[in-house]
């Protein structure tokens, strides 16, 4: 484990905790896209199929359980919690799941490392993770007032992706035969999706004004 990978995992963890904290303490999910959260739950459910069959490390297993547990509980909060669900902006969060899920599934059926159920699901989870943030970004653009926590959540997610790329560069030069095109290209696409958001995030931070994305 290198420092970039650890920092990446920690920012990923922080992003999830920020979101859970917001929902749990303020009892509000305003500005949070249920579509994106459901897609993440699907991403983790399909990627961590090996959780009980292949033991890598205690760290790995615990992190997987945290990401699975947190993503499903966020979905539960927005859908079922009697106070939180009232703040859900259903009319603004209109992105269609299948618009992202179907192309990713087709791509996974065509481009994968091995044609086995687990490998296809694993490739699918990578492709879906790359685009799962889109409903959230669209919602942010529509919501004129982005609260600090939602802004920080998206920022931390983007930082996690950027750190993973540094991790791959590091591993490429330090580990023999560390070449994973599927992971890298999907990861690069995912990180690029945050570029626009990052630009406005830093601008608002630099000028000390509230974050607003242009329509």
């Amino acid at each position: 484990m290198n420092i970039f990978r650890l920092a990446g995992d920690m920012t990923h963890l922080a992003s999830v905790l920020v979101l859970l904290l917001k929902i749990h303490t303020i009892k509000s999910c305003a500005g949070v896209s249920l579509k994106t959260q459901e897609l993440y739950a699907l991403v983790f459910a399909t990627r961590y199929l090996d959780i009980f069959t292949d033991f890598i490390s205690l760290y790995n297993t615990v992190m997987k359980l945290i990401f699975l547990g947190s993503s499903f509980s966020i979905v539960w909060y927005i859908r079922r919690h009697k106070i939180v669900r009232r703040s859900y902006d259903k009319d603004q969060d209109t992105f269609r799941h299948y618009f992202l899920v179907l192309p990713c599934l087709l791509l996974a059926l065509v481009i994968h490392e091995k044609f086995t159920f687990r490998e296809v699901m694993w490739a699918f989870s990578l492709y879906l993770e790359a685009v799962a943030i889109l409903p959230q970004l669209v919602l942010l653009q529509r919501t004129r007032n982005i609260d600090n926590l939602t802004g920080q959540y998206v920022f931390l997610l983007g930082a996690y992706r950027a750190l993973y790329i540094l991790n791959w560069i590091y591993r490429y030069f330090t580990e023999p035969h560390f070449v994973h095109w599927i992971t890298w290209i999907a990861g690069l696409v995912q990180t690029l999706l945050y570029a626009d958001f990052f630009y406005y995030y830093f601008e608002s931070w630099k000028n000390n004004v509230k974050l607003q994305l242009p329509a």
Partner: peptide
């Protein structure tokens, strides 16, 4: 092998 390295990421 490449596969075992791959699966150690989250």
């Amino acid at each position: 092998t490449s596969e075992s390295i791959l699966k150690d990421e989250l």
